[in-house]
């Protein structure tokens, strides 16, 4: 059907109707405001600032030997004895804790904020599916944090590491680490969205999400089975094993299939619960 302005009415009857327009608007909140600059500067200071303060304090004369022996480190004692390895472990552990906190803070307000402000009711009075509403936000938040907190920082960290060791850091292992950080990031964003769809209190969502992020790794000792299905062993040395993400950074090939599949399944479950719950939401 065409009207006098030459416009055609959108007549889609799909479950994601409205996604493209919402995704565009949610992206604009990141990239057409100062948010991306603020986020980039924050992560730059935190991630690369922290990395710089760590790696540039390693004496130059021990770097070639320490770097060359990374591939043979198999135990936590070995990590402790190698200055590059222990610096990387501390850096990745801090990064792996900071990224979820950033993701949770960005994600938790996304649904609750719009619901409480009344903009969710405004948007959902248009021909928009509730699934599109959630997924567009999830996608835009993930891309926003991914670019400002992971990709930009990853590129700069790679340059820093390469400059410090005097040759390019092995790219495959580094990309693997970035992939694990991305998966970990998505796990916590999805968790925050699920909780945001279930609860209407920011404090509860923030509290539960942070408890999962900060206390989850400490459960690995009492419930060792969960290390196979969660992202908690990627970077945090919670058990007496070299964290798998750290081993990947050393150029090794740790067993990651199950934790990756398990984490991905958790993400999927979180998203499905968020979608189902939000379908029933009274606005």
């Amino acid at each position: 059907m065409e009207n006098t302005n030459g416009l055609r009415m959108v007549n889609e009857r799909v479950w994601w109707v409205g996604f493209a327009n919402l995704f565009h608007a949610n992206n604009a909140k990141w990239w057409r405001t100062k948010k991306w600059i603020t986020q980039t500067v924050f992560w730059l200071l935190f991630v690369n600032g922290m990395l710089a303060s760590m790696i540039w304090s390693i004496p130059a004369e021990i770097i070639p030997g320490a770097f060359a022996s990374l591939g043979s480190i198999k135990t936590m004692d070995g990590v402790q004895q190698n200055l590059i390895a222990s610096v990387l472990m501390n850096f990745l552990a801090m990064y792996a804790l900071a990224i979820p906190v950033g993701a949770i803070i960005a994600g938790q307000d996304s649904i609750i904020g719009e619901r409480q402000a009344g903009t969710a009711a405004w948007i959902l009075s248009k021909p928009v599916s509730r699934s599109a509403f959630i997924l567009s936000k999830l996608a835009a938040s993930t891309i926003g944090i991914l670019i400002t907190g992971v990709v930009i920082q990853g590129v700069l960290a790679y340059i820093q590491l390469s400059l410090r060791i005097g040759s390019p850091w092995p790219i495959a292992g580094f990309l693997g680490v970035m992939g694990l950080i991305l998966l970990s990031l998505f796990f916590y964003i999805a968790l925050a969205y699920m909780l945001g769809a279930i609860f209407s209190n920011r404090g509860i969502v923030l509290g539960i999400s942070l408890a999962v992020a900060l206390m989850g790794p400490s459960m690995l000792r009492s419930l060792p089975v969960i290390k196979e299905i969660t992202p908690w062993t990627f970077f945090i040395p919670a058990v007496d094993e070299v964290p798998s993400g750290l081993a990947l950074a050393f150029g090794q090939t740790p067993e990651l299939v199950l934790p990756i599949i398990g984490t991905a399944l958790f993400c999927l479950v979180f998203i499905v619960i968020a979608l189902v719950r939000f379908q029933r939401e009274e606005l």
Binding site: E2, N5, G6, L7, R8, M9, V10, G18, N21, H24, A25, K29, R32, T33, A117, G118, T119, A121, W122, S125, K126, P127, V128
Partner: peptide
């Protein structure tokens, strides 16, 4: 639909708000 206490995205202008709304309904030039 006009809500009792209408809320929009505050960072948008009126034109941007209408453009955003229009894209839910129309395709075209």
């Amino acid at each position: 639909y006009l809500a009792q206490d209408p809320r929009y995205y505050e960072h948008m202008t009126a034109r941007e708000t209408l453009r955003f709304t229009a894209h839910f309904f129309f395709t075209g030039s």
